[in-house]
């Protein structure tokens, strides 16, 4: 089975704030990591490979530094990696990102299955997977909880729906976005780290794509625009209480009584 997994490098911390005076974004440190939800996608792919054979390729879009997450994927057992990187991709929203990734995937050869994580921790939209599937004109299933059966032609999964759990069979090629905890992700292996230290990561840019129309990528290819960013509203009529544990507990009790919760 040929599997492609989409991974993304995200900030290691979510402590991003806006300075209320200057309006400047403050990001503590510059550490980055693989989007935690992608670990479940990669683990799912590796388990399928172990059981049914084949290979696992990963793709990521981002600045050259994003190669780090591809190396991490190698340490977990991915066979191949592709980085899609070009400054012309800057400012991409969901649509432009999905289009860029779908163009990148077209350069990766045949596949049966694409697996993505549920969402990223920096965008939190959970939209890129389904949009990639639309661009590649393949079906997708989101919120996959379990893989039940795999045959040569299709895969049967359990998916989470608003009120129900559904079992669905979907034909290859298709895209699945998997829930957290579908499988426990393995740790990167030191042995593999040594072995894949010099492994080549292919990097492609806009000129390598089938569609070289600049207007479909980056900011130009993004229908949504961020008009402004601002710190969240403060609650104006708030009270702040200080004191010993006992005093505070009494004060809370009194207030809860007053509000008729007790």
């Amino acid at each position: 089975m040929k599997i492609i997994v989409c991974i993304k490098q995200v900030p290691g911390t979510s402590k991003v704030q806006v300075d209320p005076v200057t309006g400047v974004l403050i990001r503590d440190g510059i550490d980055t990591k693989m989007n935690p939800y992608d670990l479940f996608a990669l683990e799912t792919a590796l388990r399928l490979k172990e059981e049914y054979g084949g290979h696992v390729k990963v793709i990521s879009m981002g600045p050259p530094q994003a190669m780090e997450v591809i190396k991490e994927a190698f340490m977990m057992g991915a066979d191949d990696g592709l980085l899609v990187s070009d400054r012309k991709f800057a400012g991409a929203d969901v649509l432009a990102t999905s289009y860029t990734l779908s163009q990148g995937i077209r350069k990766m050869g045949n596949f049966n299955l694409i697996i993505t994580g549920k969402q990223t921790t920096d965008g939190d939209t959970a939209q890129v997977g389904p949009e990639i599937a639309e661009y590649l004109q393949i079906p997708h299933i989101a919120n996959v909880l379990k893989i039940l059966e795999v045959t040569d032609n299709d895969i049967t999964v359990e998916m989470d729906m608003p009120e129900t759990i559904e079992i669905a069979k979907v034909k290859f090629p298709c895209l699945l976005s998997v829930e957290k905890d579908i499988f426990q992700p393995r740790l990167p292996s030191f042995k593999r780290k040594i072995k894949t230290k010099d492994k080549e990561i292919k990097v492609i840019c806009l000129n390598d794509m089938e569609d070289k129309n600049e207007k479909k990528y980056g900011l130009s290819g993004s229908p949504t625009q961020v008009e402004r960013i601002f710190p969240p509203d403060e609650n104006a009529d708030k009270e702040i209480w200080e004191g010993t544990g006992e005093e505070l507990a009494d004060k809370i009790t009194k207030k809860l009584k007053e509000l008729k919760f007790i």
Partner: peptide, 21 residues
């Protein structure tokens, strides 16, 4: 779970913007 799966698919088909949540 349905809306989050369906909306991006529609947005991509019409090459238009979608803002989540």
């Amino acid at each position: 779970t349905i809306g989050r799966s369906l909306a991006p698919r529609v947005a991509a088909r019409f090459r238009t913007g979608l803002t989540a949540d």
